[in-house]
Design a protein around this nucleic acid. Structure first.
Lengths: 226, 226, 226, 226
DNA sequence: AATGAATGAGGTTTCATTCAT
DNA sequence: GATGAATGAAACCTCATTCAT
């Protein structure tokens, strides 16, 4: 903190952007850098450099690395949350199954649109620090909770098989996460959203394993209508 | 006369352990620390302290931080690999479906036995550095590959529904990963292995979503035997 | 925090010192650097360089710059505190005036021995941060308090003139501080302790200003020609 | 029609103040901020914010942080210098002792009027940078010099006791500094100027310590009961 | 004149790794 | 073999100062 007495070199100063635009720009750059290199291997310098601003500029907009990461995650989490619509059983115009499919579709579409964030959320967001891990866990748990409740409702309606709803929720979300991660990583286009939706839906609807070669699955059917 | 020799300083020198035992001990400590705090938040000091050795001693047994982590992952990966038995269609004594169930059971049992490593592998093993990420990806891809091939064989036999085998593999592995992670995190006992196996198996066999309330699912059956 | 993978140059490693010796050495170096350049213009690098250790080594022994400074101040404050002996009025062997003189002598001796710390305490210790300022104020206030109480006792005995004791304490301490600061700065030798003590004592005893030109002040005059 | 013009952004541009008024306003704000937080903990932003101008505007009026501080100190130093009147021995209308008392009174009055600057000068003005420290020392030394010379004159006249004049000057100034600092800090009102003057004067005239319990000091006693 | 976004030097701090004992 | 003090690269972050608008 000794008086620095600047003697600035030639460094041309970047044209000032409106505050919120610059913020947005840095966010967007950071998102991609995080997706590419992961949280821990990303330095503020990486982000600043990519954004074409000085390191100090970063700190005009964000508290620190964690803050910008947190911001990104928050935005994406709320995008996802908004994409999901609570399933209702009262509307005869919208069959439950269709609502399920719609939810899957919406989630897949969101993730295929926000590829970087999908990668970040599904792989890079763990082990930042205990507080952040906790926060992430809370979001995640909320989603599981939401799904588990819908499943319970579905069970009451005979639309969902018996079984611990939370466990079914884990299975579902695990499968979907992996599907999405791979789709995003392997560069599936946004047009594949429909196909993936169908695959996911079909998986949920009937698995893929045929336990008897006879093909009809009586005990399953029986389970469904006790 | 067995009074422990003291060096000039106060610290008493650890009794020399056979090299491999000491190595094993450090590995085992490291595993737990990594599981508890994650790779990045774990310092060599954490490990050394927990292992009751000096920081320098750590480096007598391991090249560096990455090396010990890598070692742990390798061991666990090969445990998992060994648990999985390539599915064969030729042995009439062992129905394919039973082999599948057995594989699931074995994986679940391994993970419930090696809880720390399960946590580490499923959450903490990403973002170490590009080389390591690649290596991990390779292992992971190998598993997917293995499963996808089995699924393709299964499809030929009419035991597995149509669908892109790789996609089915992703769905399966995603679901299983999540199930295991939660089981390990929530502290399921090893006795729950059988229940979890059943749940996973049942999920693969028939999903849980009933698309019609009539309950019989003819078109599905039809799909299976074209 | 990306894995650094050292490729160390040739840098010869300094011989390890016993922990407390090294700590002492750094403290002693820091004291002088602080005295020379002041708190704010002193960098950790300055201290490390002067101590002939790497920057990181500094942090093995001290939390941060504030901590080492605080440590130094604490030590010096308690040296001073110990030098001061609470004045007692009950011991006929030790006349109060003599005790006062003794205290002055002890403080001066301490400060002339610890020149660097005297400089640091009297000029450089303000404006570190609010918490530190508070702490320093507390120490300072304690000394004032102690003196003020002694003065009050003295007033009861007729040894000290009337007047608000706290104000007298401020005047005394201010005078002494300045005297010491200058003595230390101008490089008075430790032998001058006695002279300074006498000057200070004489100042307290009779000021220096003669308000009447008649000018004889009996006891003063007496003192002057014993 | 006097509706204030808004620039493209939301911020409304400050009505231009006459150059010297704005400068004065910033100076005055800076003085208080420096007094409150000290030089090092004061940022340009603090000052600009308090002054209600943009950071850049600050630099229209002052070279840099040091410059404004320096300016403040200079003004205060010359206020003090002006308050002090060189003591003359030739004017029978103005007894020397009265001139001394008058000087003390003037200094105290100035400091009680300029409380912030008093605080700044006495505590916050050290450790800015070597050049500034030197400058401050020079001012300070000038005051000591002035006083020391007056004291020497006084000694020649028999008004001041024997003793190294410079040392007496240090003692005097130290006592006065401390008295003033405490008066300002503890919030003494300007009305206390007279009391403080009296206390300081009395301290210089006779100290407070009675070296013999016989204790009567005629002229002192006389002073006390006029 | 005024603005405030942008800059980057200069400091702080951590911790994987080394090496003399 | 074991030790742990020492190292320094690499990151972090702040804030005085500049300059395009």
């Amino acid at each position: 903190m000794a008086a620095p007495k600047r003697s600035r070199k030639t460094a041309l100063k970047k044209t000032a952007l409106p505050k919120s635009e610059r913020r947005q720009q840095i966010l967007s750059v950071a998102r991609d850098v995080f997706a590419r290199r992961g949280y821990h291997q990303t330095t503020i310098d990486d982000i600043a450099l990519q954004a074409g601003v000085a390191r100090g500029t970063f700190y005009l907009y964000f508290e620190d690395k964690r803050a910008i990461f947190s911001d990104l995650i928050d935005r994406f989490a709320s995008q996802l949350t908004m994409a999901i619509v609570r399933i209702t059983v009262d509307d005869p115009q919208r069959p439950v199954v269709e609502q399920v499919r719609e939810n899957i579709r919406a989630i897949i579409a969101t993730c295929l649109t926000e590829r970087s964030m999908t990668k970040v959320l599904f792989t890079g967001a763990v082990g930042i620090d205990p507080a952040f891990d906790r926060k992430l866990f809370t979001f995640y748990d909320m989603v599981v909770q939401l799904l588990a409740e819908s499943l319970k409702d579905g069970q009451a309606l005979g639309i969902v098989d018996e079984g611990e709803p939370r466990v079914l929720a884990y299975l579902t979300i695990g499968a979907l996460k992996e599907l999405l991660y791979q789709a995003v990583t392997l560069g599936f286009s946004e047009e594949s959203a429909e196909v993936l939706t169908q695959q996911m839906f079909s998986f949920l609807s009937g698995g893929y394993l045929r336990t008897s070669t006879s093909g009809v699955r009586p005990e399953r059917a029986r389970r469904a209508r006790p």
